[in-house]
Write a protein that binds this DNA or RNA. Structure first.
Ligand code: MN
Ligand code: MN
Ligand code: MN
Ligand code: MN
Lengths: 218, 218
DNA sequence: AAACAAATTTAGACTAGTCTAAAAATTATT
DNA sequence: AATAATTTTTAGACTAGTCTAAATTTGTTT
């Protein structure tokens, strides 16, 4: 039996490890989980005992295959619920995260299979993040970050890195969402801000915005 | 802050007290919650401290108005989710209970309001139980139990009392569901079993079945 | 009214998860 | 290579919820 807290730690480690590729340190986990390092250490030991993680004292943590499987499944559930909330229940993309954070822990294979079918097997969530299929395979899309886009080329917005309410609402109020067509007009060398062309407007975005927006050539 | 366990106890007390009208004793709560009486006592004290219940040692428990409000809200969520599972995700009426038991604890007013609207404000769940509205008002239907039905009168099945998988599957396999038209042909005085007329068949049901099926005159 | 039985509460212990404070190990700096 | 700074772990305590076993209260019988 896996607890809700264990699931949250496993998911956090998965994300911090860049989808299970890097070693993660205790402080990073504690920060992500909003607990103290001592609590993280305790949980890491438990995850290690339960075979979700590999761990040697002072040497950081990696997820086992088993741990990755669990993480990917939670992420699948999280993102499917996000799609449900936006597509069926009129949530906006900045409102879904907190609720999905809880819904992701409901344990029922039938529930998630049927939800997936009901939503017609979506491949991406409302923030452009890929939804792994039942076997844990991600539908990879090759995207670049706005900060590295080429001048004069037309791109489509396909995702965001930062999913905070503040950022998503900033995008809303500037008319940027998934699917928006963006062409870079000018990059200011001084602060790396960019002037970008949208459908009916030209706006200037800071580098911190440009680093959090993913694009794909149209 | 109310915990998941507190919510489950409050809901159990609500049901045991016949919707908040009777005093409930410790052993009944312990049995309903599948814990021991000592655990129930501890929780009762806590609910009392938090103003969800009124309690005097050895004298049993009642819910406060506050406690009833919480109970009705959980029941609302539980039943709305059950409708969702059956109507949208192809669950059968014997599969929904366990999942709804978890979904009922998700805390988001927007979620439940939108779900209610998405389902077009259903008044009853898949077992015929009424769904309280946002203000906690139940849409009362006047139903009688099959065991007390009159011979020769046509009734419509509108609910079940027992929602166990075994009972619901028994009904399925005998062609009885919500909406089924039933006419009592004969009541056997010896064991109170009944011969009942369905659309295309006549079957005999025991008294324990007859006590768990709710009907309404057509 | 005393004795017995049943229901309920208390006492003390256990697990999961958290915290603070202190100790130990690792890494960086001189 | 020694010292300092940082990171991580340990020790011990706390809360929520549970348990067993014992004590207490209430209810029922004689
Ligand atoms: Mn979560
Ligand atoms: Mn998302
Ligand atoms: Mn529940
Ligand atoms: Mn129901």
């Amino acid at each position: 039996m896996i607890t809700l807290t264990e699931e949250n730690y496993i998911k956090a480690i998965y994300h911090l490890s860049n989808n299970g590729t890097l070693t993660v340190n205790t402080n990073a986990i504690a920060e992500a989980m909003k607990t103290k390092a001592s609590s993280a250490t305790d949980m890491i030991k438990k995850l290690s005992e339960k075979n979700y993680a590999d761990y040697k004292k002072y040497q950081g943590v990696t997820l086992t295959e088993n741990g990755k499987r669990v993480a990917v499944n939670i992420i699948r559930k999280h993102r499917l619920w996000e799609v449900f909330l936006v597509e069926k229940l009129n949530f906006t993309w900045d409102e879904v995260h907190e609720v999905a954070e809880h819904l992701e822990h409901i344990k029922s294979d039938k529930l998630i299979d049927e939800l997936d079918a009901f939503l017609e097997h979506p491949t991406h969530d409302p923030h452009g993040d890929p939804i792994p299929d039942k076997n844990g395979n991600f539908h990879h899309i090759d995207k670049i970050v706005l900060a590295k886009a080429n001048i004069g080329v037309a791109y489509k917005c396909v995702g965001v890195d930062d999913t905070s309410t503040a950022f998503l609402q900033y995008l809303d109020s500037n008319g940027i969402g998934l699917g928006t067509i963006i062409t870079v007009k000018y990059r200011e060398p001084y602060d790396n801000s960019m002037r970008i062309q949208l459908k009916n407007s030209e706006i200037i975005v800071s580098n911190s915005v440009a680093k959090n927006l993913y694009l794909k050539k149209v």
